[in-house]
């Protein structure tokens, strides 16, 4: 069980209100990702849920019970920190066993659970090492191990992969997703990397400046961003946002079109420009096009084999069904 409800929660540090009044319900078993630019309040929100910070106003309910005034240990949540926060003077075994020892569990039960967690996380051989003798990925797994032995109502992750290199990050991403499938426990995951958000989440919460911009499944956010900020934030490369007469013709202040929803041609199309830098990824090529009014540079995703050079003239045709229209306040126009 692990349903978490926030009701009109706010948080201020001194004069500055970093979390605006906010309502959110995280369903039991759901993998929710908080995503947003740096400083938008993701960590603060997570720490409020964890109980490491006190809310300034509002209520937090865990499984329907008011947990606003409970100390962190009593909320039944486990957290994995960005710096791992392993205890450096304890062996991996003792690190993982720590929460169980604090709960005064029996020796046999502690050993059983630690072995089980070590099995799940491939930590068997490392149980007697100190954290200092492990690689970043292994440390991360120990931190996760320390969280899962408690069998918490929900897991909280604060940018757990940001200290790992790119290849390891992809691997750990899969491992965490698999863990979620296996345990079926509620997970809240904070990241500023929208690729992590898209690949892992059941539901994404996009935050900006302490305000929830949109909540939805990854595909919903991709296909129907409710405002210009979400449109620009979700999706890689970023959506092209066109202003000026081109947008006015569609009855909008800003017109959005994703780089993958454009057809490229050498001879015909409504928008004409010249090729600038092209990024060859092998499978795809990202072309930066200059000279299209209202948006410069304009990004287009083409196939890997596209044969265009710097300075070539090209024509673009948007997929009209996938144009996004936004009004003067940046809200989506249906």
């Amino acid at each position: 069980m692990g349903q978490i409800r926030l009701e009109q929660v706010t948080k201020s540090f001194g004069e500055v209100q970093v979390i605006q009044p906010l309502d959110l319900t995280l369903e039991d078993g759901e993998f929710t990702v908080f995503v947003g630019p740096s400083g938008c309040g993701k960590s603060t929100l997570l720490r409020l849920i964890a109980g490491l910070e006190d809310v300034s106003s509002g209520r937090i309910l865990i499984d329907g019970k008011d947990a606003t005034a409970l100390v962190p240990a009593k909320r039944g949540l486990a957290m994995v920190f960005q710096s791992y926060a392993l205890y450096p003077h304890m062996s991996v075994r003792r690190n993982i066993a720590f929460p169980l020892r604090m709960a005064r569990m029996s020796r046999a039960e502690i050993d059983r659970r630690v072995e089980e967690a070590a099995e799940v996380l491939n930590l068997r051989e490392y149980l007697d090492r100190r954290p200092g003798q492990l690689s970043g990925g292994q440390r991360q797994r120990v931190a996760i191990g320390r969280a899962i032995v408690r069998e918490p109502a929900a897991f909280l992750f604060d940018e757990p992969l940001s200290n790992l290199d790119a290849a390891l990050r992809v691997g750990m991403r899969m491992e965490i997703s698999e863990l979620h499938k296996k345990l079926g426990t509620t997970m809240i995951y904070v990241t500023h990397d929208q690729v992590e958000a898209m690949t892992m989440a059941d539901r994404i919460v996009v935050l900006q400046g302490g305000i929830i911009e949109q909540v939805g499944s990854p595909l919903e956010l991709y296909q129907r961003p409710c405002n210009q900020f979400v449109a620009g934030f979700i999706g890689s490369p970023r959506m092209n946002l066109i202003e000026g007469p081109e947008a006015a013709r569609e009855g909008a202040t800003t017109l959005g079109i994703r780089p993958e929803h454009l057809r490229l041609s050498r001879s015909e199309g409504p928008w004409e420009g010249t090729v600038g830098v092209s990024e060859h990824l092998g499978s795809d090529t990202f072309l930066h096009i200059h000279g299209i009014p209202g948006c410069d540079p304009f990004t287009v995703r083409a196939s890997g084999e596209v044969d265009l050079r710097h300075g070539d003239a090209v024509f673009l045709t948007p997929d009209r069904a996938r144009l996004h229209r936004f009004d003067a306040e940046g809200r989506r126009i249906e």
Binding site: A50, G51, L52, V71, P72, A73, L77, A78, M79, F81, Q82, S83, A85, L86, Y87, P88, H89, F98, P99, M102, A103, R146, R150
Partner: peptide, 27 residues
């Protein structure tokens, strides 16, 4: 001492005395 270590111990259910004995003193 890394503050996150103390917070992790707090989440793990260690009270003030246990945090002192298990985290601060060894540090």
């Amino acid at each position: 001492l890394d503050n996150e270590q103390l917070e992790a111990a707090e989440m793990d259910g260690a009270g003030p005395l246990q945090r002192f004995g298990h985290i601060i003193l060894p540090h």
